[in-house]
C-alpha cells in the first residue's frame, strides 16, 4: 500500500479509537468535574460493560443485532447501578476525601476484576458485530461497523452535551460542581446528584465498551488501557473540562492511531504517559484548559 492510503487507514483507525476514548474519558471527566473524585475503577467499569455485553449477546436469542441492541441498554444500566451503589456504600462514607477515595477505588477495581475472573473466566471472548458491512474504498475495504461506532459515539456525546447544558438535571449537576454547600442550601440533594453522576460516568464507560467489543475481545484485564488513556485525555484536556476532554480525546486517539501504525505502540505509550506527567507538573490546568 502507498503512503497516502496507509496514512488514511491510520487516521480512520485513529478516529474509531478517538470516538471510544472520548466516551470513556468524558465519563471520567464528569466524575472528576462534579465530584472531584479520581476514579481509578473507571477502567473496570469499562471492562464490566464489555463482559456483560458478552453475556447479554451470548444468551439473547435471535439475530446478533437484537442481542447487541439489548447490550447497549442493559450494560450501562447495570454498570451504572453498580457505580451508584459503590458511591453510596463507600465513597460517601469517606466524605469524598481525595486520597481515601483513590485508595477505595483501587480496592473496588481489584474486586471488579475478581468478579469478572470468577464469573466470566480468564479467556478473551469476541462479541459478534450487530451487522456485517464492508465499505470498499479505492485502496482498501473498511469495516462499516467501525464507522457506525464513530457515529454512535458522536450521537451519545451530543446527548450528554444536551443533558448537561439544556436540561434541569444538567443544571443541577453544574450547580453542584460549582459549590456543593450552596447547592445543598438551595435544596439540591447532593448525595443523589453524586450517585447519579458516578453512575452516568460509569455508564458512559460501559457504553464505550459495548461499542468496542465487536472490534476488541472482552477480557477481565481489559480495563487497564482505557483507564490510562482516559487519565491521559482528561489531564491533557484540563481536569474537569468537558470541551478540553473531547479535544484531547481526538488528539490522543488520532495520534495514538497514527503513531502506533508507524512506530512501536510501546514507544507511543511511553511518550504519552511522560507527556501527561509533564503536563501535570508544568501546566496543571491542562494543555487546553484555562488557568483558574
Amino acid at each position: 500500500m502507498d503512503f497516502g492510503p496507509f496514512l488514511l487507514l491510520a487516521l480512520m483507525e485513529g478516529t474509531v479509537m478517538a470516538a471510544v476514548l472520548a466516551l470513556t474519558a468524558v465519563g471520567l471527566s464528569l466524575v472528576f468535574g462534579v465530584m472531584r473524585v479520581v476514579n481509578v475503577a473507571h477502567g473496570e467499569f469499562f471492562m464490566l460493560g464489555a463482559v456483560i455485553a458478552w453475556f447479554v449477546t451470548h444468551y439473547m436469542p435471535g439475530p446478533p443485532a437484537v442481542g447487541f441492541a439489548a447490550a447497549l441498554v442493559i450494560c450501562p444500566l447495570l454498570v451504572g447501578g453498580v457505580a451508584a451503589l459503590s458511591d453510596t456504600l463507600i465513597l460517601k462514607r469517606l466524605n469524598y476525601d481525595p486520597e481515601a477515595t483513590i485508595v477505595a477505588t483501587i480496592g473496588l477495581s481489584y474486586i471488579f476484576q475478581q468478579a469478572a475472573l470468577t464469573f466470566y473466566g480468564p479467556d478473551a471472548r469476541p462479541v459478534e458485530a450487530p451487522f456485517d458491512l464492508r465499505i470498499q474504498l479505492p485502496w482498501f475495504g473498511y469495516s462499516g461497523y467501525k464507522i457506525a461506532v464513530v457515529v454512535a459515539a458522536i450521537v451519545i456525546l451530543l446527548a450528554v452535551w444536551l443533558l448537561m447544558t439544556r436540561t434541569r438535571a444538567g443544571l443541577i449537576m453544574r450547580a453542584t460542581q460549582l459549590d456543593r454547600t450552596t447547592a445543598r442550601a438551595f435544596g439540591i440533594n447532593v448525595d443523589r446528584v453524586y450517585a447519579a453522576v458516578f453512575a452516568l460516568g460509569a455508564g458512559l464507560a460501559a457504553v464505550a465498551a459495548v461499542l468496542i467489543v465487536p472490534i476488541q475481545q472482552a477480557h477481565y484485564l481489559m480495563g487497564h488501557d482505557p483507564l490510562l488513556l482516559s487519565f491521559i485525555v482528561v489531564i491533557i484536556g484540563g481536569l474537569g473540562s468537558l470541551r478540553g476532554t473531547l479535544l484531547a480525546a481526538l488528539v490522543i486517539g488520532l495520534s495514538d492511531g497514527v503513531i502506533s501504525v508507524f512506530f512501536s505502540p510501546t514507544l507511543a505509550k511511553i511518550l504519552a504517559t511522560l507527556l501527561v506527567a509533564m503536563v501535570l507538573v508544568f501546566r496543571p490546568q491542562g494543555l487546553f484548559g484555562v488557568k483558574q
Binding site: E99, T273, V276, L280, V281
Partner: peptide
Amino acid sequence: LALRTSGVSFMIVTLMFAQTGYLTILY
C-alpha cells in the same frame, strides 16, 4: 519533578512515571 505537585496530582504524576518505567522495561 513530581514534588512540584501535591495531593491528587502527585498521585497521578508518580503513577505516570512508574507506568513510563514499566513501559520502558518492555521497550
